[in-house]
């Protein structure tokens, strides 16, 4: 584990024979990603544990990702806040391939919230409404504009 500051850390773990870097916490001006560059081969970034990214964090990441642009990079389990950054700032994605993202749904009936993990082959055909697990309403809607949520895919 590499603790870069008290609000952000990177956990390196082996998953099915591949090295995955789990980013956890707040990515801001203090976040350092050098540990990832030290590993050779493909780079797999798991974003699930990221809780916030500010503009300086974006800048840090964009500058870092350029240094490993010659390697194969995958983004997995991107939460909505990371998807938002990829949509607003294309260079946040750089040369990476997005393997999976969480799609947020909210229920109009009971206000429940749910994140559904969607893999790349379904990016173009994601359901706009699903059934709510909590109240069984069929009107659990994608929280956001469906046409905008996967903008990063079109930018590639």
């Amino acid at each position: 584990m590499n603790i870069t500051n008290d609000r952000f850390k990177i956990v390196r773990a082996e998953h099915e024979g591949r090295i995955v870097f789990y980013l956890q916490g707040d990515i801001d001006e203090d976040a350092v990603f050098d540990q990832i560059a030290q590993e050779s081969g493909e780079v797999i970034i798991n974003w699930k544990g990221v809780t916030s990214i500010n503009s300086c964090g974006v800048r840090n990441w964009v500058n870092f990702i350029k240094t490993v642009a010659d390697r194969t990079i995958y983004y997995i389990e991107c939460p909505p806040l990371v998807v938002k950054q990829m949509n607003m700032i294309p260079s946040f994605l750089g040369t990476a391939t997005v393997y999976s993202v969480y799609v947020p749904y909210v229920c109009d009936n009971c206000d429940a919230e749910k994140l559904v993990l969607v893999t790349a082959e379904k990016f173009g055909s994601v359901e706009e409404t699903i059934q709510c697990d909590q109240c069984q309403s069929p009107e659990m809607e994608l929280d956001g504009h469906p046409k905008h949520y996967f903008t990063f895919g079109r930018a590639k």
Binding site: N54, C56, P80, L81, K84, P104, D111, E113, D143
Partner: peptide
Amino acid sequence: EVHRTFKDVVGTVLEELIS
């Protein structure tokens, strides 16, 4: 009761404005 995605947006904007 406020959705996480909305909190993320508000948190991002407020932090940027203060910073």
